[in-house]
Design a protein around this nucleic acid. Structure first.
Lengths: 178, 178
DNA sequence: TCACAATCGTTAGCTATGAAATGATAATAA
DNA sequence: TTATTATCATTTCATAGCTAACGATTGTGA
């Protein structure tokens, strides 16, 4: 009789701590003493990444798909909505992506007539990206729904817990210059 | 004289709360009462995503680039390292990506001779992916360095704070089925 | 002034990613 | 048994995203 194989990978208990099985497996494979494994750091990184991936997928499927926008496209259009006209370089910093990515995404947004690009007057090396009226109207429709999604995602936590998470993650972002 | 333009976009104070300027801008643009904006939810989602993006970039540049592995490739190879042989479907669930992505990534890993694919015996629809010796040896070299990166990233928080973050984020993941 | 360096954006070439369609196999119902 | 349905994985096609290389513009030092 065949025994069902159970594979335990990055599994956490209710407290968010790594399960003992995986601890032992890592220990066996790395041939390193378990004491040198920072299990809390593993849990932080793994869980944060997982949540980010989950919320990105949820938003793209449930909200942004209506306009065929990716998370980054939307985030960039949001920046333009708030800031009106922004240089490519700054857009890259704001969105946390490289400049070639900004080139690609603004090109796509431009094709959809949600923004347009224009060479800078003072410095002709710079390119300024500006949101169009159509872009504004898309955001007026989309943002409330996007925000509702955000609220849903965070609703499992109390307001106090939400503030706690933000403050702690903020600390990590600052310490690592993310 | 030209006044320098300052654009405030998704900027947070030390506590991780949205700055008042952006609050007002969103309010003006959405024409919705500020009370209906869940600012804490915005902060949670934005900060978590930002941290995830930052840590992904850091790891890919500082650790994974040596073997030309992406975050997902590495995470998948890790799963195979722990689990030895895993179906494509399960790999997708573990990594939180779609099956086509698994197809592509395992194809790349296979080209690098870090894993191989084999059709299932019982169910010939299924494909099992297995790590190779070379894959194991890459992980033995890479994992300690990857783990060091994780530890560095989380080191801005105390152990108690790390446990707190994990537990809270875990809660969100569970509530949203991420 | 002119050569050199710095800065900005894009292009080129690659992998990653998802939705939708396809192909193959297995399970189920008539 | 046969037809239908369900389940897997892959292919196709599009966008996203990186690094490296390039082209254009500006700044700087001799």
């Amino acid at each position: 009789m065949k025994v069902k194989e159970v594979v335990t990978i990055h599994s956490f208990d209710e407290e968010g701590a790594l399960l003992p099985e995986e601890k032992e497996t890592i220990n066996r494979l790395t041939k390193l003493p378990m004491e040198s494994l920072d299990l809390d750091a593993i849990a932080v990184v793994t869980n944060v990444y997982r949540m980010a991936q989950g919320l990105k997928n949820k938003m793209e499927r449930e909200v942004l798909a209506d306009y065929g926008l990716s998370w980054t496209s939307f985030s960039m259009l949001y920046d333009l909505w708030i800031g009106d006209s922004i240089e490519t370089k700054k857009l890259a910093e704001l969105a946390g992506v490289t400049k070639p990515t900004v080139s690609n995404i603004t090109k796509t947004l431009e094709r959809k007539e949600l923004c347009y690009r224009k060479t800078g007057d003072r410095d002709r090396r710079a390119t300024y990206v500006t949101i169009t009226e159509k872009g504004r109207s898309v955001m007026e429709d989309l943002y409330p729904r996007f925000h509702q999604g955000e609220a849903e995602i965070a609703s499992g936590l109390s307001v106090a817990e939400q503030k706690q998470v933000s403050a702690l993650i903020r600390k990590v972002i600052k310490a690592n210059d993310f």
